[in-house]
Simulated scan of single mutants.
Amino acid sequence: MSDQLWYVSYGSNLLRERFFNYLTGSDDSSEFGAHPAPPSTALPAAEKWLWIDHALYFAGISKRWTGSSAFVSTAVNSTSSSVAHGYLIDRDQFSHLAAVENVVASVDIEAVDTLAVGQWARLPLDRQGESFRGKYDSLLRLSDIDGRLAFTLTSSIVREPGEPSSRYLSTIRRGLLSASGDLNVDAYLQAAIERSVKITSAHRGSSSEATRCSPTTGKQ
């Protein structure tokens, strides 16, 4: 079993400088605010830009960004692929990242060893009864990258409608502009915003959570 895996980002962590706050820790003077120190401050062993077949959308409210957060659908959708930035990191670093993203003390990521490509599992989290915790509670297995496991974090439910803040969009835009290629960044983000309205509207008023997809029940 390898101690390294690919964490695949699609939101503000597209920007390398922003993602590195999780790997090095940061204080309030950081552009992106305070982040607790990780168990290891090693930088990624490799990085890669790619597309993933999961639709990007914005929903909910972020305390850090004061607007909606970015998520990708747990369902595979090759017609609404998303730009992603992969980082090859240690499992302990990924576990730390998952805990910080969910604003909890720790996260058990044992599911990384049982999920098949296209499957997802809800992470066991102690939300302490606070709704701002556990937004990224879904561990989603993506296609392997260079022979190693690849995962992203998203929400197991579609959260309330909202709009991303200009600061948040600016950070994502900076990340996208740092990638090579001829992507029309503004058109890409606008399409995601318009998609968000449709996705959150379709789920508005529904209180049922998405069905957990376990390794024995097929793909979500």
Rank of each mutant, 00 (worst) to 15 (best):
residue 1 M to E: 07
residue 5 L to D: 02
residue 9 S to F: 08
residue 18 R to S: 03
residue 18 R to C: 01
residue 22 Y to E: 01
residue 22 Y to W: 07
residue 25 G to I: 12
residue 27 D to N: 15
residue 28 D to G: 07
residue 33 G to I: 09
residue 35 H to P: 01
residue 36 P to I: 06
residue 37 A to Q: 09
residue 38 P to W: 05
residue 39 P to M: 04
residue 40 S to T: 13
residue 43 L to M: 15
residue 46 A to T: 05
residue 49 W to E: 14
residue 53 D to M: 08
residue 56 L to D: 04
residue 61 I to S: 12
residue 63 K to F: 01
residue 64 R to P: 01
residue 67 G to P: 04
residue 68 S to P: 05
residue 72 V to S: 02
residue 73 S to I: 03
residue 74 T to M: 09
residue 77 N to F: 01
residue 78 S to A: 14
residue 81 S to P: 04
residue 87 Y to Q: 06
residue 89 I to W: 07
residue 90 D to P: 04
residue 93 Q to M: 11
residue 96 H to S: 02
residue 99 A to Q: 10
residue 100 V to W: 05
residue 101 E to W: 09
residue 101 E to L: 07
residue 102 N to Y: 05
residue 103 V to D: 15
residue 105 A to H: 10
residue 107 V to F: 05
residue 107 V to M: 02
residue 107 V to L: 06
residue 113 D to R: 09
residue 113 D to S: 09
residue 115 L to Y: 08
residue 117 V to F: 07
residue 119 Q to P: 02
residue 119 Q to Y: 04
residue 120 W to V: 01
residue 120 W to Q: 10
residue 122 R to E: 13
residue 124 P to V: 12
residue 124 P to H: 13
residue 126 D to I: 10
residue 126 D to S: 10
residue 129 G to N: 08
residue 140 L to S: 06
residue 145 I to Q: 08
residue 146 D to W: 05
residue 147 G to V: 12
residue 149 L to S: 11
residue 150 A to K: 13
residue 152 T to G: 02
residue 152 T to C: 10
residue 158 V to E: 09
residue 163 E to H: 01
residue 172 I to C: 01
residue 173 R to V: 00
residue 173 R to L: 00
residue 177 L to Q: 15
residue 178 S to H: 10
residue 179 A to D: 07
residue 181 G to E: 09
residue 182 D to A: 14
residue 183 L to R: 04
residue 187 A to P: 05
residue 187 A to E: 15
residue 197 V to I: 13
residue 198 K to E: 15
residue 199 I to D: 04
residue 214 S to G: 11
residue 215 P to F: 05
residue 217 T to R: 10
